[in-house]
Design a protein around this nucleic acid. Structure first.
Lengths: 212, 212
DNA sequence: TATAAAAACTGACTATAAGTCATATTTTAA
DNA sequence: TTAAAATATGACTTATAGTCAGTTTTTATA
């Protein structure tokens, strides 16, 4: 008796249809300029129905963030090579991040513009996923740990903290680009060049290496 | 005939009174939970009057951000020592940043929670100040430049880009703390320890230095 | 196949808060 | 003394997120 299963699938599909509709509008018109009524019309459903599937507008936005994080997570994990040293893997992950930024700019913006202060308006279940075992942050931590063990990454700082620092620093630069890209243009600084330079700083730091 | 000047002063004072009122409420109840009517009542003025002095709610929030940036700017500049090397000055500036984070947490949050996507709702004049000559970012740039000239800072990356990278990276970590402090608590990571470790990463990078 | 219960959906309605504007009050200049 | 200018007011307009009583569709049961 597969009726329950079929209904489950249908529910899932409808949920996705709503996310698709929201995504089309958000990506086209920007998060500010899309109302729940717009989304309802685009999804060919009534507004009330949206609230059967999503707790709030933020929850719907967050569903798009989750799609983005899944893509990013996949890109990061698929370049992992257990035969390489930790540092090299981290470098590869940096490349994946850049690729995500270039190839999925809309998802990138969805993640950047999600207002974490409104996390409480997101379904509890979804909230947990971001820190779950398959999150990019956890994977970061594991690879850094390996790097410390194989001697390619400095062991002074606990891997957990290093992972957070890296993640937050990279997010900071991406956010800067997302919000102030116009300013960078005026200064004649190319986005990708800036990101590559950031990776250099991450690896080797600001300090001039002593010659001897 | 000092009437114009007096009126100017009075206007300035009223403007400040409004910012004071908004600040008291924002700092006490959080940005989400304060309405323009609340602020009008706290300032003992009508709501209409607020709009004579501020273009929008965001503009008022931004006025508080400006106060915070001025404090930060002062803290950063007052530790500058022209006799020290660039790298050392950058380190001192890092300490100032930490001090700002500890001593002015409300202003810190005001800056973090200002939504840069809403920059267009801010008075044009105010918008420019943040990139003016006396902004922390410009000062950063100058000190990094000096560090590159005195050989203490790696010359590979143009100072302007280095300044943006540093600024954005540091903001990223502070934002992480502001938004996900709860998560750090759960992981048993102390905020200040995390910031100090970030400074290490900024200076020396992730990579293990080769012994020889 | 008829029917009652459950599930899914609807859209008019409510609540809230930002921003406006015609009017009133206060200050200045002559 | 008074008219013009500057400042202040708060009821009103507008916008939109979220709700809920009622309707339609689907499923289970006799």
């Amino acid at each position: 008796m597969g009726i329950t299963e079929r209904k489950q699938r249908e529910k899932e599909r409808r949920r996705n249809d709503i996310i698709d509709a929201a995504e089309r509008l958000f990506f086209k018109k920007g998060y500010e300029h899309v109302t729940m009524d717009d989304i309802a019309a685009e999804a060919e459903l009534s507004k009330g129905t949206l609230y059967l599937y999503f707790k709030s507008r933020e929850d719907l936005h967050y569903a798009i963030v989750m799609r983005g994080l899944e893509i990013l997570n996949r890109l990061i994990r698929e370049v992992y090579d257990p035969n390489k040293k930790g540092l090299e893997n981290i470098l590869q992950m940096g490349e994946s991040y850049i690729r995500f930024f270039r190839e999925y700019p809309d998802y990138f913006k969805a993640i950047m513009f999600f207002d974490a202060t409104k996390f409480d308006k997101v379904e509890t279940e979804s909230r947990l996923k971001i820190l779950g075992n398959d999150s990019p942050l956890i994977f970061f931590m594991e690879v850094l740990q390996q790097g410390q063990e194989d001697g390619s990454i400095s062991p002074d700082i606990p891997a957990a903290q290093l992972a957070i620092i890296l993640w937050a620093q990279v997010s900071g630069v991406f956010e800067f680009i997302a919000l102030r890209g116009r300013m960078l243009d005026l200064m004649g600084i190319d986005n990708i060049e800036l990101i590559r330079n950031q990776i250099k700083v991450l690896l080797y730091g600001l300090a001039q290496k002593k010659e001897h």
